[in-house]
């Protein structure tokens, strides 16, 4: 195959991979969202959930963040110190988004693959029964090429906990603690679109400027792992070799430039997802709705359910 043909076929492949325009989803009516994640920074991982969390809080939701691992590997300060710093930054980052509380389960970071999944699932069920979320938000349990074992396990436990918590015969012993059965009715799954075909979002959630700004700020609250000044310094050096510079960085230290660069990244991805949905800013999700587990009844319900 000639180079030209190869380039043409690559271009065709890239075009065919372009996502179709996503429908805009509304935030469901509700009071509580529970964000179930393994790590301190997963509320605003690079493809982002922070915008939706900020929007839900704007629309009246109470938000609670579950951090399933102890984050001991994330950072350069050794296990114990990383755990402390990452928890502190998690509290700060989630506060920016309007989240009320961080609940740490403290499973060992990056070693969650062999943990008893039903035990983790029970922890999530306890929290769902306590906080009674309408919406559960986390990594898409069915995404492909997810390499992080903590992401896989928490997502898989979430895939069952969100609805199973509504069945009284699931951990009936919880009743003695005053925890009544409660199902969440919506699951919002997030994943990276560039990791295979496992995550094909079905809605885009529109964000406003303020929500994107909160997402940016929440992301760079995690200075233990993001916004490394050395990265900005390396960019400056590389650009200077070609007589180039970033005007916005001229009066900034490397640390400040690194923060700005991360904020741009958050804005860029929110703008890109927005463009795909025909709005200024957005995030995309695969949403499982209240009756998606009853595919045979969906049409019947849509025609026959009426207001009281």
């Amino acid at each position: 195959m000639t180079l030209a043909m190869r380039l043409l076929s690559m271009a065709a492949l890239a075009l065919s991979a372009l996502p179709q325009k996503l429908p805009l989803g509304e935030v469901p009516r509700g009071k509580v969202v529970l964000i179930l994640q393994p790590h301190h920074d997963d509320h605003t991982t690079d493809y982002g959930m922070g915008g939706l969390i900020a929007r839900m809080v704007d629309e009246g939701y109470e938000a609670y963040y579950v951090r399933a691992s102890n984050d001991e590997k994330d950072g350069a300060h050794g296990y114990a110190r990383n755990d402390i710093v990452n928890l502190r930054e998690s509290v700060e980052g989630t506060r920016i988004l309007g989240i009320r509380k961080v609940i740490s389960l403290n499973w060992r970071n990056d070693y969650m693959n062999p943990i008893p999944l039903n035990e983790l699932r029970e922890q999530l069920i306890v929290l769902i029964r306590k906080y009674k979320p309408d919406v559960v938000l986390g990594h898409n349990p069915w995404e492909h090429y997810q390499k992080n074992p903590d992401h896989r396990q928490v997502a898989r436990a979430m895939a069952e906990a969100w609805w199973m918590a509504g069945f009284a015969n699931v951990h009936p012993e919880h009743a003695a603690l005053g925890l009544q059965p409660h199902s969440a009715h919506y699951l919002y799954g997030k994943a990276r679109l560039d990791w295979g075909l496992g995550h094909r979002p079905n809605v885009a959630i529109e964000l406003n400027e303020s929500q994107v700004r909160k997402k940016q700020k929440a992301y760079v609250a995690h200075l233990n792992v993001y916004a490394n000044p050395a990265t900005a310094r390396a960019y400056r050096v590389a650009l200077a070799r070609e007589n180039l510079a970033v005007p916005e960085w001229e009066s900034l230290t490397d640390a400040e430039a690194a923060v700005l660069m991360e904020e741009w990244h958050m804005q860029w991805i929110s703008r890109r997802r927005g463009a795909e949905a025909g709005v200024p800013y957005a995030e995309d999700y695969y949403v499982l709705g209240e009756f998606d587990h009853l595919p045979g009844l969906k049409e019947y319900l849509s025609k026959n359910v009426v207001a009281r």
């Binding site: 009853l294 595919p295 045979g296 009844l297 969906k298 049409e299 019947y300 319900l301 026959n304 359910v305 009426v306 207001a307 009281r308």
Partner: peptide, 25 residues
């Protein structure tokens, strides 16, 4: 704040009807 008329009274007949609708769907 919603209702499905067939389930206003949850009788064995109403449940059977729901199951039939599910299978047909």
């Amino acid at each position: 704040g919603r209702r499905l008329p067939v389930l206003d009274e949850i009788t064995p007949a109403a449940i059977r009807r729901l199951v039939e609708e599910n299978v047909r769907g």
